[in-house]
Computed example of a mutant assay.
Amino acid sequence: MARAGLNLGVRELAELAQVSTNTITRLERGESLYPRTVEAIRAALEAAGVEFIAENGGGAGVRLRREKGAPVA
């Protein structure tokens, strides 16, 4: 969801996270990865504007960071 929200392709995210495209595909299929690899992908998504939301009874999720000065809908 985070990658789609940013309108990033697999190749673009792989480049940002400095991992292979196969690694992004494996993550999206739910396969296990090394924790440091998951952290690199998470850091790349956060740098691109994604906020990860902790589980609060409704499940974990993501949202796009609102730009400063943007009106609240």
Rank of each mutant, 00 (worst) to 15 (best):
M1A: 15
M1I: 09
A2E: 06
A4M: 05
A4Y: 08
G5D: 07
G5H: 03
L6C: 09
N7Q: 10
N7R: 13
L8N: 02
G9R: 10
G9Q: 08
G9V: 04
R11P: 03
E12K: 12
E12T: 11
L13S: 09
A14I: 04
E15Y: 05
E15I: 05
E15Q: 11
L16D: 05
L16N: 08
A17H: 09
N22F: 00
T23L: 03
I24H: 02
I24F: 03
T25L: 11
R26D: 14
R29Y: 08
E31Q: 14
E31F: 05
S32Q: 14
L33S: 11
L33W: 13
Y34L: 15
P35R: 12
P35G: 10
P35C: 09
P35W: 12
R36V: 15
T37D: 11
E39G: 10
A43F: 08
A44V: 12
A44L: 12
L45F: 06
E46N: 08
A47M: 13
A47S: 15
A48R: 13
A48F: 05
A48C: 06
E51G: 07
F52K: 11
A54W: 02
E55K: 02
E55H: 12
E55Q: 07
G58P: 00
G59H: 06
G59I: 02
A60W: 07
A60F: 10
V62H: 00
V62C: 02
R63M: 10
L64P: 00
R65W: 00
R66H: 06
K68S: 14
K68P: 03
G69R: 08
G69D: 05
A70E: 14
P71D: 09
V72Y: 01
V72S: 06
